[in-house]
Deep mutational scan, measured.
Amino acid sequence: MTEYKLVVVGAGGVGKSALTIQLIQNHFVDEYDPTIEDSYRKQVVIDGETCLLDILDTAGQEEYSAMRDQYMRTGEGFLCVFAINNTKSFEDIHHYREQIKRVKDSEDVPMVLVGNKCDLPSRTVDTKQAQDLARSYGIPFIETSAKTRQGVDDAFYTLVREIRKHKEKMSKDGKKKKKKSKTKCVIM
């Protein structure tokens, strides 16, 4: 069974824990209790493949930012979460993405942009803004509501699919490099 290491990042209060708990335990946590770091595991079937999701729910508070490099190193894919009623959390996505790329030393890291709290009427981040940002990053965008469960499975499952595509691409690139290195030079 394939294991996928997913990391949920975003500013404090955007609903990272609520999304994760909704996926794992099928219930909505409405009281806000700032996370330092929590880890969850769940076995699911995605596109006919049974897999184990190892999900790291991270601290959004700035005082825990020193811990970010460590979990970013171990993560295979990242859910970059903002709240649709919090423009600052949307603007912060850029910083999370840049930090992930720096730590992973790669421009090509599996990510999904997630606009959470889409059940709320007080939207300050337009869907088109988020779609445009995701398009500019070359990553999928999904709106979710941890409260109603809308888009929750889709967000995590899409990230797994992005990781699969990335692994497939990397193995193809690896095979191309191996083929090239088999060419021999004969000096007579």
Rank of each mutant, 00 (worst) to 15 (best):
Q61S: 05
Q61L: 05
E37H: 04
K5S: 04
D54L: 02
E49Q: 13
Y40E: 01
T35A: 15
V29Y: 12
G15M: 00
I21P: 01
L19M: 10
I36F: 06
Y4Q: 09
Y4C: 13
T2E: 14
T35Q: 15
K5L: 02
D54T: 07
G13H: 09
K16Q: 15
D30S: 10
Y32T: 14
I55Y: 14
V44T: 11
E37V: 07
Q61A: 05
G10S: 13
G12Q: 04
V7K: 03
V14D: 14
L19G: 12
A11N: 06
T2D: 13
V7L: 09
T50G: 11
T50A: 12
V45A: 12
V29L: 11
R41A: 02
D54E: 14
E3P: 14
D33Q: 04
V8F: 03
I24C: 10
S17G: 03
R41V: 02
P34H: 14
E3T: 10
D38C: 03
K16V: 15
H27S: 12
I36D: 01
S17F: 00
Y32D: 03
E31Q: 12
D47K: 06
V44C: 12
H27R: 13
E63G: 06
V45L: 10
S17T: 04
G15C: 00
D33L: 04
A59G: 04
E3M: 07
Q25D: 06
C51L: 08
E3G: 12
T35M: 15
V7A: 07
V44M: 09
Q25F: 04
Y64Q: 13
D30T: 10
L19V: 10
H27K: 13
Q25S: 09
L6K: 01
E31G: 13
V29S: 07
I21F: 15
A59R: 04
E62D: 13
D30C: 10
E62M: 07
T58I: 08
L19S: 15
A18H: 05
D57W: 00
S39N: 13
D30W: 06
D47E: 09
Y32K: 03
G48T: 07
L19E: 14
G15R: 00
D57N: 01
Y32I: 08
G15F: 01
D33E: 09
G10Q: 00
L53S: 07
L6N: 01
G10R: 00
L19C: 12
L23R: 15
V29N: 06
L6W: 12
Y40Q: 03
T2R: 13
E31N: 12
V8D: 01
V7I: 09
K5M: 02
A59H: 05
L56K: 09
A18E: 01
S17M: 00
D47C: 04
D38T: 02
A11C: 12
D54Y: 04
L6T: 04
T35H: 15
V7S: 06
C51P: 08
G10M: 02
E62L: 08
G12C: 04
V8H: 01
L52D: 06
V45T: 13
C51D: 08
E37C: 10
Y40A: 04
D47Q: 06
V45Q: 12
S17D: 00
A59D: 09
G13S: 10
D30F: 08
I46T: 11
F28C: 08
Y64G: 13
G15P: 00
A18S: 14
A11E: 14
R41N: 02
A11G: 07
Q43C: 08
E31D: 12
T20I: 05
V7P: 01
Y40G: 02
D38E: 07
H27G: 13
D30H: 09
V9M: 14
D33N: 04
Q22Y: 03
Y40N: 02
Y64S: 13
L53P: 11
R41Q: 01
G13D: 11
N26G: 13
E37F: 06
P34W: 14
K16P: 00
G15W: 00
A18Y: 00
T2K: 12
L23N: 14
E62G: 13
V45I: 08
V45D: 12
Y4I: 13
G60I: 14
G60S: 15
Q43R: 13
G13I: 03
G13L: 09
Q22I: 01
T35F: 15
G15Y: 00
T58Q: 05
T50Q: 11
V44Y: 08
E37D: 11
T35V: 15
L52V: 12
I55N: 15
V44R: 09
Y40T: 02
I55W: 15
K5E: 04
V9Q: 04
